[in-house]
Nucleic acid binder design. Sequence first.
DNA 1: CTCATTAGTCAGTTAATCTGTCTTTCTGGT
DNA 2: ACCAGAAAGACAGATTAACTGACTAATGAG
Lengths: 150, 150
Amino acid sequence: MTDMHPLDGERIAQLCRAIYDNLREQIYAAAAQEGFVDLRPSHSNVLRHLDPAGSRIVDLAVRADMTKQSMAYLTDALAKLDYVEIRPDPTDGRAKLVVLTPRGHDAVATLTRLSLEAEARIATRLGKAKLDAVRDGLAEIRGVLEKPGQ
Amino acid sequence: MTDMHPLDGERIAQLCRAIYDNLREQIYAAAAQEGFVDLRPSHSNVLRHLDPAGSRIVDLAVRADMTKQSMAYLTDALAKLDYVEIRPDPTDGRAKLVVLTPRGHDAVATLTRLSLEAEARIATRLGKAKLDAVRDGLAEIRGVLEKPGQ
DNA sequence: CTCATTAGTCAGTTAATCTGTCTTTCTGGT
DNA sequence: ACCAGAAAGACAGATTAACTGACTAATGAG
């Protein structure tokens, strides 16, 4: 351990940021090469939280921890790009349902595959056991952070 | 492991994102409460890479992986907030040196401390050994991602 | 049946990036 | 010593992804 810059050391936060940035870049670049050129990282705030039967904007906003205005902006963009369809919720006249189009299903499948492939590449260098241990540790950390007061 | 949403699973990338977001939020909120209300996460793109003798904008830009225009925007903002001083580089008439002010030193020290405190809180729940193992694993992953072709 | 709550929209703002173009300064090769 | 090209930064403008505040329309509980 050479003496490092105060904020640049081996902090969990910095490591997570570097890894996340790298993987996100990798995955969206690969997705672009597979035809999803107009797919942006911010879109995964929608795709990640969409449930199969469709979701309301307000629910997506809560899950993604953003305002409904911001979520509406994202779903609207995805609708224009033919990744989702936005239709009235038959059970509530105020609400809309955001549902994946076939292209949207493709995109989700592709992102999922690319994400798994990226991990597999890491596993070939680290070993599956170690990678699994890191993943478990991260999941535990996330759990701790989500309910801080014990 | 319940069957999860395709993109919402226990992927390393997602875990890193969640953890990084949470820690960043925590740390900058705490910094604000300690008087650094005008300090923003984007500013750490500067602070993290500043070396003690001062750095050139172009070097900071390279280190932070952004354009020099963007870096100039950030350093300018930090200068207006009295975290850094920007002065001519005596060794090169084209260049400027960005150096920390006393307040900037304070900010770096505070962010570093808050960051370490956040990790310490995690350690009390996970155990130091496990946390260290995760950190080592993450560092290894980052290493792999930085030089992908072996 | 009314009124508070909820879902979403509209308008405007801000933060943090980007690209392209320009000026100034430096430097290496002849 | 000169000049051509590289490098450092500035200026102008665009874009993306968020935000807040104020609004409309539909729901549902008492």
